[in-house]
Structures are given as C-alpha cells and as structure tokens.
Design a protein around this nucleic acid. Structure first.
Lengths: 220, 220
DNA sequence: GTCTATACTTGGATAGAC
DNA sequence: GTCTATCCAAGTATAGAC
C-alpha cells in the first residue's frame, strides 16, 4: 500500500503495476494448484503470468511473499463467499447445504488446494508456518461462529462444543481436499456432505429439546 | 530384493549395504518431517544419514524413489501396529480408544506427516500421485473393515455406510495432522478423540436395536 | 559399497540498461 | 516498471578411483 500509488487521473485502478501484480498473484495460485509448493518457482509463476521472472522480486520481494499474497487473495475472496451464503443459514441442514455448494466450487477451482500446499510447504521455509497460521485463523473463527449458531438450535449442542466441531470441520475440509486431489475425484467428499445433510435433517426435525432419554445431559 | 544379497555366513542381516539403505530410509523419514517434501533433497537426507549424497542414487536410483521407500517403511510398520491394537476392539468405544492411543504416537513421531507431505509433494512430480495413492489404499481398506466391524454392533449402522465413514476418518486423520503440525500442538486433535469416545459410549450403551423412534429406518 | 569430483540444471536474487 | 544479463547457491545425477 505504500508503493507508488495511482498517478493517472483520479482513482486510477488500471495501473500497469497493479495489473502485473494481479497477474502474478493469479499465476501463483495456478502454480500452487498445478505443481504444488515445491514446483511453484519464480520462473514457473512468471511464465504463467507472461512476464519476466525478476518482476516477482520487484513486486513481492521473494517467492515466498508472493505465495503468501496468493493465499491472502484466495482466502479473502472465499471467506466473503462463505460468509455471504452461510450467514443466511439458520438450521444445520441449511448450513450443510450452503457449505456443500461452496466447497464444491472450491474443490473444482482448487482454492483449498492452495491452502493445503502452503501449510505443508511451510515445513521447508523457516517462519512460514506462523504466517500461514495467521491466515488460517479467520477461517477457524468463522467456522466456530457459523457452527455455534446452527448448533444452538439443535439437540446435540450440549454434547459437542462448537470450537471442537469447528476444529474437526476445518480438519475435515483439508483432509477431503487432500484425498480429492490425490484421487482426482471429488465425489467421495460430496457424498459425505449429502450424508451429513441426512443426519442433520433428523436433528433439525427433533428440535432443541428433543434429546432421547438416556442421551440427555451426559455431555462429558 | 534382487540386489546382491546376503554374503556373510547364513542369513546375514547386517550387511553394510542394508545398513546404509536402512539409514537412508530413516533419514528420509526425518527429512520429510523436519523440512517437508520440498526440503527433502538428496544432500539433506544423506547428511542426516551420515553418508555420501551419491549413495542415495546408488541404492534407490532417485530421490523420489527413496522417499517412496520411506513411505513404504513407515506405512508398513504403522499398519501392523494399528491392526494389532484395533483388531482386538469389539465396540465403537474400544475402537476409538485404541485409535487414539496409536494416533497420539503417530502425531508425536510424525508418521502421518510423512504421508501428508508425500500426498502434497506428489503435485510437483509427474506420476508420483498414483504411487502414493497405491500406498494409501491398504489404509483405506483397513479403516473400512475396522469401522464396519465396530459399526455393525451399533444403532447407527443403517444411517452411515462404513465406506463413507472410512473416507471421512482417513480425511480426518490427515486434516488433524495438518493442523497439529501447523500449530505445533496435538491437543486439539486428541480432544476430538475424547469427544468421539463420549458419544460412542452412548451409542454402545443403546445397543444395535435401540434407535429412538423417528430416527430408525431413514438412512437415505 | 563408498567416496571424490564433476557435469549439468534449475532456482533465488540483484544490477543496470531502457 | 519492465527487461536482459548475470551471479551464486543448491540440487540431481553420473563417472571413476579406491
């Protein structure tokens, strides 16, 4: 943000510089999906962005910082997408339905793959782990809030604290992405959403106070 | 196995060659855990094994093949460990208890980390994905068998087919490993096992035919 | 089987012309 | 801001001495 800034007329958005930056970020996302963290070199990314390799360092200082910018970009875009759709969900079923729709897009577009590559790639770059972790934090908070909200109106609220479910859900998303990428097949992941929906619909039906005798009040 | 073979007396196990091979495999596992796939170079691994870099290629042909041998090694050792302990489990609670104990070891020793690194690293090496996938297959089968067995005696058997649960469990293990490594903290993962245990104990208590009215026979 | 030495390639990063 | 040219470090892999 402290860089040269807009110079042509007022509120110029189409600066050459910002265009190149955007192209590099987009190319970095592509590279992480196609060839993974290990293969996402400055040369490879620049080739995808149709520009010179040195621009990576001019605009971002290092390859790692460019990859982090890529993670920021996809993370921000997806987080608002999830918030828009999930915010409208009142019941567990609605929450699962909307999550499924967005996660399907993510699987196809490789958004979660970017995150997974950065998490594992962080092992090989000292200090990167903390920065990736910071970018994952808003996702964890979001998951906890969304799940807590939908869970409150369900009979299982007492059995499973929202922050634990949130951890499981985030881990589940990451794991499902890993398997889907490895298999080249997202159907197994989506089937789980359908299954979860079936179970959630039963819970929603029962309502908040409908715990069967023997299951109530035994949360720990 | 087709290599030179035992030469000193009968059934010699301590050949210099096999010792070096073992040291390299062990070092490769270390490297995958410490610096990830991207950092696990022949030089780094050889340094950990206290031998020359060229031996990687003499014994394994390529770095990738050594990493696959490392995956084979840890996978085989852990699979028998799981089979021994999990095979004795009759109920869901017992299954979860034994899984927790072994998974805690895995988190500490970084066994799952090796697998996760190989899955994501496979993106950058053409053809590696299929080979990693082949090594994951026995784990998926094992999970499905173990879960199917324990689930049969539980009221939820009709609601959740074993192969779907198995997929979810495998994905969950991988995702929990990712987060535990990133956080440098396994406690969140272990807390989920404890929570699962609580819920499973309720299901075990209810028994196979104890589905509450309204939940029975609605599996799809 | 193991080492040294080396050829070759790729990648990160910078300097300087335009 | 972008390019060319270049340096340097690190990696894969092989040849050949021991």
């Amino acid at each position: 943000m402290a860089r040269s800034g807009a110079r042509r007329t007022v509120g110029a958005v189409g600066t050459k510089s910002t265009e190149t930056r955007a192209a590099l970020v987009e190319a970095a996302i592509d590279a992480l999906q196609d060839v993974g963290f290990a293969g996402a070199s400055a040369r490879d990314i620049a080739r995808r962005a149709d520009c010179n390799q040195s621009l990576v360092f001019y605009h971002f200082g290092s390859v790692t910082d460019l990859l982090l910018a890529a993670l920021d970009d996809v993370s921000a875009r997806r987080l608002t997408a999830y918030q828009d759709v999930v915010g409208a969900a009142g019941t567990l079923v609605e929450l699962i339905d909307s999550s499924r729709a967005i996660f399907e897009q993510d699987l196809d577009a490789g958004h979660v793959a970017v995150l997974v590559e950065m998490i594992t790639g962080a092992q090989s770059v000292p200090g990167l782990g903390a920065q990736v972790s910071a970018r994952l934090a808003p996702w964890r908070e979001f998951a906890e809030t969304a799940i807590g909200g939908a869970l409150a109106r369900s009979p299982v609220a007492a059995l499973v604290p929202a922050h634990e479910v949130a951890h499981a859900v985030v881990a589940g998303f990451l794991g499902l992405e890993l398997l889907a990428t490895l298999d080249g097949d997202r159907s197994a992941a989506l089937a789980l959403f359908d299954r979860a929906r079936t179970i959630a619909s039963l819970l929603d039906l029962l309502g908040p106070a409908a715990l069967p005798a023997g299951l109530a009040g035994r949360s720990s």
